[in-house]
Each structure stands twice: as structure tokens, then as C-alpha cells.
Simulated scan of single mutants.
Amino acid sequence: MSNLVSMNNMGIVVENLDKAIQFFEAIGLKLEGRMNVAGPWAGKVTGLGDQNVEIAMLVTPDGHSRLELSRFIEPEVISDHRMAPVNALGYLRVMFQVTEIDELVNHLIEQHGAELVGEIVQYENIYRLCYIRGVEGILVGLAEQLSK
């Protein structure tokens, strides 16, 4: 028996919220809202105690998926895993289905300082895909569907 209804969002902690928002908007997400989440009640969920976090919620064009970007004001960030290799335990990455992958990758490299991790590859006649390191070294997967 499963009680799962849907995935609400995926979260990424960032250092510079404005730059992270701009980067994910360049991929095609839309800023849905921005706010501070503070106080002991929030810390009860995270286990961090009294906290103050500025969050931004972005949504994909289809409206089904959300990405929550968080910038911790209190408590201070204690660890940095942004540049961990993709085979590190617990490592996180987010992947988006896109169109015109070559054009998007070039734009993200030229305008937002992204770096292509390996190369854009083709998986059978189904996808062209790649990993890029975006703003703050966040690993992002991009996949362009070739056939249905």
C-alpha cells in the first residue's frame, strides 16, 4: 500500500539566492514566490532549532515540479558538498527535460558561467543528455527527448 500522492519539491541550499534564481530561470523555471521561514517551529522540522532561512520556490513550465532554493541566515552553513563528484554518497543533482539542449548549454556557459561536466551524449534514439555545473557548482542534468 502506498500513501504517496506526488513529489512536492526538491531543495538545494545556496549561498547567493539571487544568482541561483537567475540561473534556474535561465533554464526555464519560473519564480513562484520568495519568503523567509524563521522561528523555532521551522527548526522542529529540520532539527536545527531556531532558524532563519530565506527561500525561493521555482516551478517548471508544466506546473508539476518545484525547486526550493534556500539560503540559511541562521544557523550558519556548516558543510559544503557542491563540488563533490557525482559518485559521492548522498550527492544530489536535479535533472530537467529541455528542448534545444545545445543552444541552452551554450547560453548557460556564456551567460551564467556554467561548465559542461563531460560532454553532451546520445542515449540510443531516445535522449541527448549532459551534466553541467551551474551557479555555485550545483550539478544539473539536462535531457532532450529525441523520440516519444
Rank of each mutant, 00 (worst) to 15 (best):
F24V: 00
E25A: 04
A26K: 04
L29N: 00
L29S: 02
K30A: 12
L31P: 00
E32W: 06
E32D: 11
E32M: 11
G33A: 04
M35P: 00
N36G: 10
V37H: 03
A38C: 11
A38Q: 14
G39P: 01
W41C: 03
W41N: 09
W41D: 12
G43T: 04
G43M: 05
G43C: 05
K44D: 12
V45W: 10
V45D: 05
T46C: 04
G47C: 12
G49N: 01
E54Y: 01
I55L: 10
A56G: 01
L58P: 04
V59R: 11
G63A: 01
R66Y: 08
R66T: 06
R66S: 10
L67W: 02
E68G: 10
S70E: 09
F72H: 15
P75M: 09
P75S: 07
E76Q: 15
D80V: 12
H81S: 10
R82H: 12
M83I: 09
M83F: 14
A84P: 00
A84L: 13
V86L: 09
A88L: 06
R93G: 14
R93N: 15
V94H: 01
V94F: 06
V94N: 07
M95F: 05
Q97R: 15
L104C: 11
V105N: 06
V105I: 07
N106L: 13
H107D: 14
L108A: 05
E110Y: 02
E110M: 10
Q111E: 15
H112R: 06
G113R: 03
